[in-house]
């Protein structure tokens, strides 16, 4: 009886230790969002106090190294393609028939006038590999129990943020909120995930909203219209030649 009690007590103490580390949670949440490969249709809505604008895209990804984004609307930008291969990002502009390599200095600039940066879109920096992860308490968002995870960039990582708080739901591992801080500890951007839906067996937020804290009356919202995982693509699909040919 006494042994049993000690055993039980031991189990209670050990159980949390055996649970996932903060890094595991981030990794799993990322994998859940991306899958092995994926194809998605998105509408990106840029909201400003006096106007709004919509961009329609289709994108493909393979692992973390390959991604391709095709813009089909507005008409003047139709056919514009962004391609990510490893650490390089290429942009095909059909109207001028030019392929442009985006320099690293442009990664933090606005993507097509939205509140997302080029980096946000193609995820050149990796929230798994470029940061150290730690639990920073629990909260409740959208009626879901969430981990609050603090991400601090590694000293040699090419990252502009000073700190990131990522809020991930315990049960479904959804990234429901991300707060981006600069080096001085000021909150710069907040990304909210909401409108939880199930796409081909995966539960994910349908909408991601990026709000810059400096101008809270403007934001950019990404809405997943369609999402497929584990599709039939190979790294060969993500080539500069295909960038000029591809149609959704």
């Amino acid at each position: 009886m006494k042994h049993l009690l000690v055993g039980l007590l031991g189990l209670i103490l050990i159980a949390p230790l055996k649970a996932q580390t903060a890094k595991d949670i981030i990794t799993q949440a990322e994998e859940k969002l991306r899958g092995n490969s994926s194809r998605s249709s998105m509408t990106i809505t840029i909201v400003r106090p006096s106007w709004t604008r919509e961009i329609t895209t289709t994108s493909w990804s393979f692992g973390t190294d390959y991604a391709l984004i095709y813009i089909s609307d507005p008409a003047r930008d139709a056919g514009t393609v962004f391609l990510k291969r490893d650490k390089e990002i290429w942009n095909w502009q059909p109207s001028i028939e030019r392929t442009i390599k985006l320099p690293p200095s442009m990664m933090m600039q606005s993507w097509m006038g939205s509140d997302f940066t080029n980096d946000d879109l193609v995820r050149e920096s990796s929230i798994v590999n470029d940061y150290t992860h730690d639990f920073a308490g629990d909260t409740v968002i959208l009626d879901r129990e969430c981990y609050k995870i603090e991400l601090i960039p590694k000293p040699d990582a090419a990252v502009v943020w000073g700190k990131i708080y990522s809020y991930i739901s315990k049960e479904e591992l959804l990234q429901l909120k991300t707060q981006f801080f600069d080096e001085d500890g000021y909150l710069i951007n907040v990304m909210d995930g909401f409108d939880i839906q199930t796409y081909n067996g995966r539960t994910l937020p349908r909408k991601l909203r990026m709000t810059p804290m400096e101008t809270p009356d403007q934001y950019t919202e990404m809405t997943y219209e369609d999402l497929e995982f584990d599709i039939d693509v190979t790294p060969a699909f993500f080539s500069q030649q295909n960038m000029k040919r591809i149609r959704p």
Partner: peptide, 12 residues
């Protein structure tokens, strides 16, 4: 190449 009205991409 440039940026146009309301962040639209200006290309020609």
């Amino acid at each position: 190449l440039g940026q146009g009205y309301r962040g639209i991409s200006a290309r020609g």
